[in-house]
């Protein structure tokens, strides 16, 4: 084999590998972080379809918006506020990606926009063609409730949803207030949105919690089904509000413990045995 052909081949292989690696990173980040809420040419999920987004906005604007949409909205940017209003006032979570990484993601998006040229619908709100919940039954809802409340541990050992989230449901006795109330999440995000978020959470805390404990497909469907049922039945639910009851019980139990301590230690030595001698006023003139 000719040595020059070898060199040329190596050069090509090198360039090819280089492109794959770097194109790959943008795609990876997109799939991991963005795909939960966004599609490229497949219509609206939680957030807008990102097809041709690089043509609609400047790269600078996009980078700063992606890094912190909250800051952008707060800064009074008209476009940012418009998007925020349009998409049910759900803020896009902030992230820690560098400018270079985000640019790679944008590159990937513009690349993918080209591929999906024909099938897109122009970013208007259209639900995905098939709903994952089309074949769910009461069994699914029950299983989803079990996972949500923690009665049933997920197969891969993730935490129960109720550790952090709350829903308006009589069946769930107590639930967390660390994260958002999920009673209305189905109305806002729809089944595809919920499924996408549950599968690979874009939020930093939730992402970290489920990084090594992903939910299975079946569990995702069950949970989504459950959250839909919560949303549908919420007007019939009258869950007890324990917040004041807890305070009340706390006071009662405190009084009981306090009283029993007094009773237990009532017959104790309260003063030194020589108290009367020691407490006598001193005759020493200071």
């Amino acid at each position: 084999m000719n040595i020059y052909r070898m060199k040329t081949l190596l050069l090509f292989i090198g360039i090819f590998a280089f492109t794959i690696v770097f194109a790959g990173e943008g795609e990876n980040i997109f799939k991991k972080t963005c795909a939960a809420c966004h599609t490229i040419g497949k219509g609206r999920l939680v957030g807008p379809d990102l097809k041709n987004i690089t043509k609609k906005q400047s790269q600078e604007w996009l980078v700063s918006f992606i890094q912190s949409s909250t800051a952008k909205i707060k800064s009074g940017d008209a476009d940012a506020i418009a998007i925020f209003e349009q998409y049910n006032k759900i803020k896009m979570p902030d992230n820690n990606y560098t400018d270079a990484q985000i640019i790679k993601v944008l590159n990937y998006i513009s690349q993918a926009s080209g591929i999906n040229q024909g099938s897109g619908t122009g970013g208007q709100a259209t639900a995905p063609a098939t709903d994952i919940l089309s074949e769910t039954t009461a069994e699914n809802i029950k299983a989803g409730a079990a996972i949500f409340s923690g009665k049933q541990r997920p197969v891969n050992g993730g935490a129960a949803c109720s550790s952090c989230h709350k829903v308006r449901d009589e069946r769930i006795f107590s639930s967390g207030t660390l994260a958002k109330d999920l009673s209305l999440v189905y109305d806002v995000m729809g089944s595809a949105g919920i499924a996408a978020i549950v599968k690979s959470p874009p939020f930093s805390v939730m992402g970290a919690a489920y990084k090594n404990h992903p939910l299975t497909e079946e569990e995702v469907i069950n949970l989504t089904a459950y959250l839909r049922s919560v949303s549908e039945e919420r007007i019939y639910q009258r869950p007890t509000d324990f917040s004041m009851l807890f305070v009340f019980f706390g006071i009662v139990v405190f009084i009981i413990i306090f009283m029993s301590t007094i009773i237990l230690y009532f017959k104790r030595k309260k003063l030194p045995v020589n108290h009367d001698v020691l407490s006598r006023p001193s005759k020493v003139i200071n």
Binding site: L264, Y265, R268, K269, K270, P272, V273, N274, H275, L278
Partner: peptide, 15 residues
């Protein structure tokens, strides 16, 4: 157990 953290039967410095 009852007197683990407060033993009232113990002589105090004044005793």
């Amino acid at each position: 157990l009852k007197n683990m953290f407060h033993n009232p039967n113990m002589p105090v410095l004044e005793d």
